[in-house]
Amino acid sequence: MVKTMDKKLEPIVKAMQSKFSATLEEFRAEVHLFVKPEQIVDALTLLRDEYNFELLSALTAVDYHPQSTPRFHVIYQLTSLAKNLSVQLRVPVNGDSPKVPTVTRVYAMANWRERELIDMFGIEVEGHPDPRRILMPDGTEGHPLRKDFPLGYEEPQFTFNFDEIDLRKPYAKE
């Protein structure tokens, strides 16, 4: 397993550090660059146009609840096909009014993934062309992938508690 950062990534990291004062974290040869929410559109545009990161592989978020500043990290995983490189951008977002600008104008793929952010994390995406829920039905309360959303465990039926649960289970009628 390769343990250090790819040499070809060094100029890219340097450019990101000087232009956006991004901070760098490295783990198992993966490069994570932290940028501010207002810089993300420019940062992605730069990476796509100057450094051939044509593909936005993944766009997701992590919830660090109960920590609130920052509560979320929004993650942009980029891939360069031409140079065979990967880089990850992380945008810390605070918990009180989580907000990131839309990147659909840079990568069209972000459209659905950002709708997923809106739906599953309740992170507002400013300027999104179609900010509806994507996976959960309309009218669902809460955002499932937040840590304070309960998993929704129901007690399974076994022999010893079969009758008790049977009584309260909402069986459908004809």
Binding site: F27, E30, H32, S57, A58, T60, V62, I75, Q77, S86
Partner: peptide, 20 residues
């Protein structure tokens, strides 16, 4: 306490797993 992203080529394309 860290995160990784690893991907394979599935029959449908890049199947990536982000794990933290």
């Amino acid at each position: 306490k860290a995160s990784v992203y690893s991907a394979i080529e599935s029959p449908r394309g890049e199947l990536g797993v982000f794990l933290e």
